[in-house]
Design a protein around this nucleic acid. Structure first.
Length: 914
RNA sequence: GCAGAAGUGGCGGAAUUGGCAGACGCGCUGGACUCAAAAUCCAGUGGGCUCAACACCCGUGCGGGUUCGACUCCCGCCUUCUGUACCA
C-alpha cells in the first residue's frame, strides 16, 4: 500500500499556512541569502510542468540555507501586465483586472499545492497600483535624467548646463528633451491600416496570414536611452557569475565595434556619412549604398528614376524585419542616378539604395568595398559593379578577388595611396590607424565606436500596462507628474479595442484623457501609450526586499541587507530571458545606482538557467501516398513538423508507433518486423497543438507533490533539457514509499524497528557520506546526484532489521528540502513538536564520511589484473608487496621485467612490465 | 553562416586537477510470498566468447594524437539542441 501522501500533503500545507511557517525572519543580524525565481506571467492556462522545475530547485536551496542558519528571502510574485490578458478580455468581456485576479489565485493554489516556502505577505503583483506607482516613479527618474559622459553616470536634468545661446523657454525645453534618458521619437512600428492598430512583432505573421497588410510606419514613440549605458552594461558583465553563453549573448547584443565615420560628398554637394570598421579599405570603395529609409535618398534621386525608386522604398517598407532578412538571401537594390566622390582617390562612384543596408545601424549608409566584404562582393557581382583589391594576404600572394572577397584582418595594404597618404605595405591594424589619422587631419572623418544596441522602444499602444505619467498641454508643452501625484491609475474601461488611430484604447476614455491640470490650471491630455511588459520586471527583485513600503520602492536598510554585497545571490530562470529582461533590468539598476538608490552595480550575482522539460519521446514511421513505408534516412522534417521524402519531396504521412515494436540496431531504432525501416525518434517541446502537455495537477493527484518535486529534480542535471517520461515517476514514488516504511508502520506510527542503538561502522559511513554528499551537492545545484545518494541510504538501511533512531532522524532532515511534506510528517512521527522547517541541517563527521579501507586497483601494463582491500593511505612499498602476492598479478608478470611502478595513492598501483 | 552547450546500456542519467566506465532510477529476466494477481522483498541485467565458472577480448558519436593509463587533454570531422542572424 502506498503511503498516504494526499492526507499528509494537504494537512501540512494547511498547517504551514495557518501557522505562517514561511514568514520571513525579521532578525537582520543573521547572514542573509536571497534566492529568486523569474516570476511567472499568470496565464489562464495555469502552471505548466516546466514551472516547478526551477521553483523546486530554488525551494530546495532556500530550505537548505534556512536549515544552515541563514535568513533566506525566497519570494514569489506575478508579472501580470501584458497582451495575452488584454486579448482574453477582448474576447470574453471579462476585465483584465478580474481575469488577472482569477489567474493569480489559480497560480497561488497550484504553487501552494507543491509545498513551496513562499511568504505570501511578500507577494509582488506588477498590476497593483501600489506596485506600478514605483514603476512610474522609476520611469520619471529616467525621464528627468541626462547622461553625463564625463562622470559616466545619470544626473538630474536640473543640473544640466544650458548652452548660453538658448534663451527662449521652448528652445531650452527642446534642448533638455534632447538629453533626457526617456524621450519621444518617430520610430517605425508594425502598422495595420485595416485593423487600425499597431501590432506586436509576434502578431504580425498571424494577421498577415489572414490577408491583412502590415507595413512599417513611423509613429510617435517613447524611447529609453539604454545606449548611454552600453559600455557599462558590457564591462560590468565581468562582475557577475553568469553562464558563459548568456554573457556571450549579451556581449553580442550590445555589439561594440570600432571603426570610423567617413564623409563622402555627392556631386550635388551633399555630405553622406558612412560608418565602417575597415577605413583602411577606403581606396577599394567603388560605390555607396544607402538604406531605403535614409533621409538623403529623395533629394539625391535623379528625376527620371524617381517613380522606380519610390516603388522600391515602398516595397521595402512593407516587408517586416524578418522578411527582409529571409528574402535578402538574394540581395536587391537600385541605382538612384547620383554619384559621390571617393575622398581617398577622387573616383566618381555611384550611389545605390538597398534594403540589406539597415537604417538604424551606424549612419544608415555604407561605403561598399566589394573586394573585402562578402555582402558587398555578392551585390557587386549581381549588379556588375567594379571590384578593386586593396588588401593582400601577404606581399607576394596573389588572390582572385573577382571570385571571392578577402575579409581577413591580417593582410597588407596595396593599391592604396594618394598624394598625402599611403597604406601600401601596412599591416591592416596600422593601416586603419593611419587612415583614421588622415581622415581626421582632413576633417572628413573620425574614429568611432559603434554599438548594435539600440535605444529601447518603451511605449505600447495597449490598455493593459502601466500608464506613462506625462501630460501634454495645448500650447505644446508638457509636464511629468510629481511623486505625490503617483500612481497614475488606469481608468476602468470595458472596451479594449484600439482607438483606430494607432493610439491605445485609453485615447477613447474621454474622462481620463482630457482634463484640467490642477497644478497649472491648464487644459491637459494624458499620454495614451502604456509601458511594455518588461517594465514591471525591471525592478521587482528590489520590491521583494520591502514590498509594503509606501515611502520609497524599498528602504535603504532593507535593500542593502538583502542585496549587498553583489546583488541577488542566486537567480534562476529560463534562458529565453538571457538578453532582453536581463539587459533591461541591469539598465534600470544602473540608473538607480547612479542616484544611490541601490548600492550594488549589478542586480543579479549568480544566474542559472534551468533546462527545458521536453515531451515524452515519440517514434514515427512514414508512408507515402502509394502506401509504401519509407525509412527515416530518406525523410526530412520542416519547421512545422511536416515530413517529406528527401528524394522526391513527396509529403509523407507519419504514424506513431510504440517502443515495444522497435529494435535498436546501432544508433537508430528500426521496426521489429521490418528491420530495413528506420523510424524517426525524437522528443518535442510540450505544446497544446502537439497534445503532449503534462499538467502538474494531474501528477500531484496521482503521485503527490513530493514525488513531482523529486522526479523533476531526479530527471537529470538542472541545466539540461530532458524528456518527460511519466512511467519513470514510479521510481521516486517507490523511493518515498520505502522511506515511509523505513520509519513508519502501517498505521502511521513510529515503526517498532526504529530503535535507539549505536550505529555500526558501516552504518556510520553510509549516514555521514550521505550527509556530506548532499551538503556539497545542494549548493552546486546538483540535485539528481543528491537524490541518488538518498536512495543508496534507504537501500542500505533497509538491509537491517533495526533502524538506528539517530540515522533516521538525520536522514529525514536531509530529505526535508527535497520532499517537505513527507519529511514533516516523519519528523513528527519521530517525536518532534516543531516544524522541520526550523530544524538544523545535520552535520557530518569527515572521518566517518570516508571508509577506513579502500579497494586498490592493481594493474599490469595498465590493464586491471586485480583489486586489493587495503587500509586508507597505504604507502607504496606495502601496496607493492601485497600486490605482488596476488596470483593474477604473478601470472601476468611471469617472465617479464618490471620497468616501472606507478602508484596513485588510494587509487591504483600499476606495474609496467616488458 | 556565427556563438554556446551536448553526444556514455533498451531509456533518464552517474563518473573530470587523466586512474575500477555505466552509480541511482525506469524497463526487462528469474526467484520468494500468494489459490491467483497486485504490492513487497531477493538476485541478475553493456556486448562478445564459453555448457558454465574462471579467464580473456571489445566498448563512452567518428578519425587521428599525447600518455604507463583518455568518457576526461590536443587536432580534424559528424550529429543534435539552444540562441542569433546582412550590424558594414
Amino acid at each position: 500500500m502506498a503511503y498516504p501522501f494526499k492526507e499528509i500533503e494537504s494537512k501540512w500545507q494547511k498547517f504551514w499556512a495557518d501557522n505562517h511557517t514561511f514568514k520571513i525572519d525579521e532578525d537582520y543580524s543573521k547572514p542573509k541569502y536571497y534566492v529568486l525565481d523569474m516570476f511567472p506571467y499568470p496565464s489562464g492556462a495555469g502552471l505548466h510542468i516546466g514551472h516547478p522545475e526551477g521553483y523546486t530547485a530554488t525551494d530546495i536551496i532556500a530550505r537548505f540555507y534556512k536549515m544552515n542558519g541563514y535568513n533566506v528571502l525566497h519570494p514569489m510574485g506575478f508579472d501580470a501586465f501584458g497582451l495575452p490578458t488584454e486579448r482574453y478580455s477582448m474576447e470574453t468581456g471579462i476585465h483584465p483586472t478580474e481575469a488577472t485576479k482569477v489567474n493569480i489565485e489559480n497560480f497561488k493554489r497550484q504553487l501552494n499545492s507543491l509545498g513551496f516556502n513562499y511568504d505570501w505577505d511578500r507577494i509582488v503583483n506588477t498590476t497593483d497600483p501600489e506596485y506600478y506607482k514605483w514603476t512610474q516613479w522609476m520611469f520619471l527618474l529616467i525621464y528627468n535624467s541626462w547622461y553625463d559622459h564625463n562622470l559616466q553616470k545619470a544626473r538630474p536634468v536640473s543640473e544640466l548646463a544650458i548652452p548660453k545661446h538658448l534663451s527662449d523657454t521652448r528652445e531650452i525645453e527642446e534642448y533638455i528633451d534632447s538629453k533626457r534618458l526617456a524621450y519621444i521619437s518617430m520610430i517605425p512600428v508594425n502598422w495595420c491600416e485595416a485593423l487600425g492598430t499597431v501590432l506586436a512583432n509576434e502578431e504580425v505573421d498571424e494577421w498577415k496570414s489572414k490577408g491583412y497588410t502590415v507595413e512599417r510606419k513611423p509613429m510617435r514613440q517613447w524611447m529609453l536611452r539604454i545606449t548611454e549605458y552600453a559600455d557599462r552594461l558590457l564591462n560590468d558583465l565581468d562582475l557577475v557569475e553568469w553562464p558563459q553563453s548568456t554573457r556571450d549573448m549579451q556581449i553580442n547584443w550590445i555589439g561594440k565595434s570600432e571603426g570610423a565615420e567617413v564623409v563622402f560628398k555627392s556631386e550635388s554637394g551633399e555630405n553622406i556619412t558612412v560608418f565602417t570598421t575597415r577605413p583602411d579599405t577606403i581606396f577599394g570603395a567603388t560605390y555607396l549604398v544607402l538604406a531605403p529609409e535614409h533621409t538623403l535618398v529623395s533629394s539625391l534621386t535623379s528625376g527620371d528614376l524617381r517613380e522606380d525608386i519610390e516603388n522600391y522604398i515602398k516595397s521595402a517598407a512593407e516587408k517586416s524585419d524578418l522578411e527582409r532578412q529571409e528574402l535578402n538571401k538574394d540581395k536587391t537594390g537600385k541605382f538612384i542616378g547620383a554619384y559621390a566622390i571617393n575622398p581617398a582617390n577622387g573616383n566618381r562612384i555611384p550611389i545605390w539604395i538597398a534594403d540589406y543596408v539597415l537604417a538604424h545601424y551606424g549612419t544608415g549608409a555604407i561605403m561598399a568595398v566589394p573586394g573585402h566584404d562578402e555582402r558587398d562582393h555578392e551585390f557587386a557581382k549581381k549588379y556588375n559593379l567594379p571590384i578593386i583589391q586593396v588588401v593582400a594576404p601577404s606581399v607576394d600572394v596573389i588572390i582572385d578577388i573577382d571570385n571571392e572577397a578577402f575579409c581577413e584582418k591580417s593582410g597588407f595594404g596595396i593599391n592604396s595611396s594618394n598624394d598625402e597618404v599611403s597604406l601600401n605595405g601596412l599591416q591592416t591594424y596600422d593601416a586603419i590607424r593611419t587612415m583614421i589619422g588622415w581622415l581626421e587631419g582632413k576633417n572628413i572623418g573620425k574614429g568611432k565606436v559603434q554599438f548594435k544596441l539600440r535605444d529601447w522602444l518603451f511605449s505600447r499602444q495597449r490598455y493593459w500596462g502601466e500608464p506613462i505619467p506625462i501630460m501634454f498641454f495645448e500650447d505644446g508643452t508638457k509636464r511629468a507628474l510629481e511623486s505625490d501625484e503617483l500612481p497614475l491609475v488606469l481608468p476602468p474601461v470595458s472596451d479594449f479595442k484600439p482607438a483606430g488611430t494607432g493610439e491605445s484604447p485609453l485615447a477613447k476614455v474621454e474622462s481620463w484623457v482630457n482634463f484640467i491640470d490642477k497644478k497649472t490650471g491648464k487644459k491637459a491630455r494624458f499620454e495614451t501609450n502604456t509601458m511594455p511588459q518588461w517594465a514591471g520586471s525591471c525592478w521587482y527583485y528590489l520590491r521583494f526586499t520591502d514590498n509594503k513600503n509606501t515611502e520609497i520602492f524599498a528602504s535603504d536598510e532593507m535593500q542593502k541587507y538583502w542585496m549587498e554585497p553583489a546583488g541577488v545571490d542566486l537567480y534562476v530562470g529560463g534562458s529565453e530571458h538571457a538578453v532582453l529582461h536581463l539587459l533591461y533590468a541591469r539598465f534600470w539598476h544602473k540608473v538607480l545606482f547612479d542616484y544611490g538608490y541601490v548600492t550594488t552595480k549589478e542586480p543579479f550575482k549568480k544566474l542559472f538557467h534551468q533546462g527545458l522539460i521536453m515531451g515524452e519521446p515519440e517514434h514515427f514511421f512514414f508512408r507515402n501516398a502509394a502506401g509504401e513505408t519509407i525509412s527515416a534516412e530518406f525523410v526530412r522534417e520542416n519547421d512545422n513538423f511536416e515530413f517529406f521524402d528527401k528524394r522526391n519531396n513527396e509529403k509523407l504521412i507519419q504514424n506513431k508507433i510504440a517502443e515495444d515494436n522497435l529494435e535498436k540496431i546501432g544508433e537508430h531504432f528500426y521496426l521489429k518486423d521490418n528491420q530495413a525501416i528506420r523510424v524517426h525518434s525524437k522528443s518535442y517541446k510540450m505544446s497544446k497543438s502537439r497534445g503532449n502537455v503534462v499538467n502538474p495537477d494531474t501528477v500531484v493527484s496521482e503521485f503527490g507533490a513530493d514525488s513531482l518535486r523529486l522526479y523533476e529534480m531526479f530527471l537529470g542535471p538542472l541545466e539540461a533539457s530532458k524528456p518527460w517520461q511519466t512511467k519513470n515517476i514510479i521510481g521516486v514514488f517507490n523511493f518515498l514509499n520505502r522511506v515511509w516504511r523505513l520509519i513508519a508502520d502501517d498505521n502511521g506510527y513510529l515503526s517498532s524497528q526504529v530503535q535507539k542503538t549505536e550505529l555500526n561502522p558501516e552504518q556510520e559511513y553510509v549516514l555521514h557520506s550521505t550527509i556530506k554528499k548532499i551538503s556539497e551537492d545542494i549548493p552546486a545545484l546538483s540535485f539528481n546526484t543528491s537524490i541518488a545518494q538518498m536512495m543508496i541510504f534507504v537501500n542500505e538501511f533497509n538491509k537491517y532489521d533495526i533502524k538506528p533512531f539517530e540515522a533516521m532522524e538525520k536522514f529525514v532532515r536531509c530529505l526535508a528540502p527535497f520532499a517537505p511534506h513527507i519529511s514533516e510528517e516523519l519528523w513528527r512521527i519521530l517525536g518532534n513538536s516543531e516544524s522541520i522547517y526550523f530544524a538544523d541541517f545535520p552535520e557530518y563527521d569527515e572521518t566517518k564520511a570516508s571508509k577506513s579501507t579502500i579497494e586498490l586497483v592493481v594493474q599490469v601494463s595498465s590493464k586491471i589484473r586485480g583489486k586489493l582491500q587495503v587500509n586508507v593511505d597505504i604507502d607504496q612499498a606495502s601496496a607493492e608487496k601485497l600486490a605482488l602476492e596476488d596470483s593474477q598479478v604473478k601470472k601476468h608478470l611471469e617472465g617479464k621485467e618490471i620497468k616501472k611502478v606507478i602508484f596513485v595513492k588510494n587509487k591504483l598501483i600499476n606495474f609496467i612490465a616488458v
